[in-house]
Amino acid sequence: MSENVILLAVDGSDGSKRALNHVRRRAELGGAKVVVAYVIEWSPYSFNTPEENAERHSRRESEIAKAHDTVVGPALSHLSEGGIEVESVVLHGNPSETLIEIAKKTGAAQIVIGRRGESGLKSLIFGSVAGNLIQTAPIPVMVVP
């Protein structure tokens, strides 16, 4: 069964919309199950003010709710329209590491992610999620331009 699970990484960008459309077409053809994942960038090792810490829990809740409402929810209904079996995950963490964890847990056969096309300098310094995934993922990664 795991051969037929596709992990779709979304972030609400145009690239991720193109990836969504691509996955819908592939899944309709091959009858795959799609796991839609949104990773909210977050590090447990950042430095915060006491006030930020005190408000953290409610912030987290609203971040997750926002991800569901604006990105994951619409993606799920778009896929369901095509009669595709879907599942969703919203997590905080390092995007590429967390996506790989999700892929392992859901037994995904491949990861599909949209290209953001960020400018040279920014991706040179910080790298890109798609780039990191290609370097580190244990399963094939498809980058949708």
């Binding site: 909210i40 977050w42 447990p44 090792y45 950042s46 430095f47 915060n48 810490n53 953290r56 829990h57 987290r60 971040e63 997750i64 997590l91 905080h92 963490g93 967390t98």
Partner: peptide, 10 residues
């Protein structure tokens, strides 16, 4: 519970 205040942050 990722996304909550970590021990490190506190």
């Amino acid at each position: 519970s990722s996304g909550e205040v970590s021990h490190f942050q506190a």
